[in-house]
Simulated assay, not measured.
Amino acid sequence: MNPAKSPDLPQPPVIGKVSHHSIEMSWLNEENKSRTGPPEHWTHFSVEQMDPKTHTFSSIYIGYSTRHVVEGLKSSTHYSFRLMVTRPSGEFSFSPVVSVFTKREPFSGENLHQALNRENEQELTTVLQSRMVNVDVHDKMGFTPLMVAAQKGFTSLADILVKHGADINKRDSTGRNSLMQACYSGHLDMVKYLRKCGSTWQSRDTDGCSPLHWAVDGEHLPVITYMIQDGCEVDVMDKVSLWTPLMHVSAISGNAAVASVLLQAGADVNVRDKAGKTPLMVAVLNNHVKLVKLLLDSGADHHLKNKLETKRLFMFQNIINLLDKISMEDSD
């Protein structure tokens, strides 16, 4: 004989704690509070979940407990449940349906960086206002959101980050801060903004390189010009090789236009590094012909050519000819 359906409707499950992936439910058991006797004399319960497509129910819990936590759910999703109560007599009844939404999945550092890289101001603000994420959280490359904004030139997003407490002096694993990122990438508006926020030209990375070293390496004339006009020290040295920005140009890019700006600002054309080399010596060894000429025209000591004789086999002939020509002119 099939069990009979009871006319008495039980109360629906009471919704407890709801997260982005779980829902807690509880219900009363008025008939068997003490649960004396064998289990077959107890009322048992079944929590049923509705399929949103077919509107049919299936059991997700069967037992004697008055509490159940549904886990493994999707975030921000609507779920419906009912309680089936089966009494010792075999009679059963269903409660009214109760519906609930799971919460939105908590924001993470990944969400913050995604919003930043998409240049989405509204999304970035939403993540920050949730207060679930540290504004200075690093990405996989070790960059904070402000460093990324500085690197990409997202000044308006940088302003949002700073207003939510971003640390302008935070550094990556190499000691670079946001100002250095902006200088190297050539974003003048970002450089000006960070200066307004208190970033300083005196900051150094782990090798002792300054923002001007990074701007020179990036070969960005408008940024370099602004930095010098703003009082940046021209002959600042790193702490590894004692290279000034002018020495960086001689060793790396050979960019005569960048060197010219530095020289016009008073950079020492005959400064020596830790090994005793001058910008001219380094430019010669790196075959930067235009830069060699500029340095010589700017007062570089061309008699250093004699000190370079041991390096002669490593020089390119056009530079040797240039130095020889100058020496002959001096003789005349």
Results as ranks from 00 to 15, higher is better:
Gly186His: 05
Asn2Gln: 11
Lys103Pro: 02
Arg35Ala: 10
Val100His: 08
Gly109Lys: 00
Ile224Cys: 04
Glu24His: 13
Thr43Glu: 06
Glu309Asn: 13
Val258Pro: 00
Thr102Tyr: 08
Phe101Val: 05
Leu221Phe: 02
Glu110Gln: 06
Asp238Ala: 06
Asp205Trp: 08
Thr126Gln: 14
Gln202Phe: 00
Asp324Ala: 10
Lys277Leu: 11
Thr77Lys: 09
Pro245Trp: 03
Leu246Met: 10
Phe154Arg: 03
Pro245Ala: 01
Leu188Pro: 00
Glu48Val: 12
Ile228Asn: 01
Ile62Gln: 12
Met141Tyr: 12
Leu263Ala: 04
Met237Lys: 14
Asp167Phe: 08
Lys290Asn: 13
Thr310Met: 12
Leu146Arg: 04
Ser80His: 07
Leu262Met: 10
Leu212Lys: 02
Pro211Gln: 00
Lys5Asn: 02
Ser156Leu: 05
Ala267Val: 01
Leu194Val: 00
Arg176Asp: 02
Leu194Gly: 00
Asn117Thr: 13
Val127Tyr: 02
Ala115Glu: 04
Asn134Leu: 04
Ala256Trp: 05
Glu30Ser: 12
Ser241Gln: 10
Phe154Glu: 07
Asp273Gly: 14
Asp159Tyr: 08
Pro3Glu: 14
Ala275His: 12
Ser260Asn: 14
Leu157Pro: 01
Lys74Ser: 15
Ser210Asp: 00
Ser178His: 01
Gln129Asp: 15
Lys274Glu: 15
Phe314Trp: 09
Ile23Lys: 01
Ser298Arg: 08
Gly142Thr: 04
Trp27Gln: 13
Ala251His: 06
Val18Ile: 09
Asp332Ala: 09
Pro38Tyr: 11
Leu28Cys: 08
Leu83Met: 11
Gly63Val: 07
His44Thr: 11
Arg82Met: 03
Gln151Ser: 14
Cys232Ser: 11
Glu71Leu: 04
Ser178Cys: 11
Glu30Val: 10
Leu295Trp: 00
Asp235Lys: 13
Val162Leu: 06
Leu221Trp: 01
Val69Ile: 15
Met50Val: 09
His288Met: 07
Leu179Tyr: 08
His68Gln: 09
Asn111Ala: 04
Thr155Ile: 10
Met84Ile: 06
His302Gln: 06
Cys232Arg: 00
Asn32Gly: 02
Asp230Asn: 14
Pro52Lys: 07
Glu233His: 05
Ala166Thr: 08
Ala259Asp: 01
Ser75Tyr: 09
Leu242Cys: 15
Asp324Gln: 10
Thr126Trp: 08
Met1Ser: 13
Leu9Ser: 13
Pro96Cys: 12
Pro96Asp: 15
Gly208Asn: 07
Leu9Arg: 14
Val223Ser: 04
Gly16Arg: 08
Asn286Thr: 05
Gly90Phe: 05
His20Cys: 03
His248Arg: 13
Val223Met: 07
Ser327Gly: 03
Pro7Phe: 11
His21Ile: 05
Asp167Tyr: 08
Ser6Leu: 12
His138Lys: 14
Pro245Asn: 06
Gly299Asn: 11
Leu304Cys: 09
Leu304Gln: 14
Leu128Trp: 01
Arg118Ser: 15
Arg82Gly: 07
Lys152Tyr: 02
His288Lys: 15
Ile168Arg: 06
Tyr193Met: 05
Lys33Trp: 01
Asp332Ile: 12
Leu280Gln: 01
Ser75Arg: 06
Leu9Pro: 00
Val127Ala: 05
Phe92Ser: 02
Ile160Tyr: 00
Thr66Asn: 13
Asp235Met: 10
Glu329Asn: 10
Gln229Cys: 12
Lys103Ile: 03
Leu116His: 00
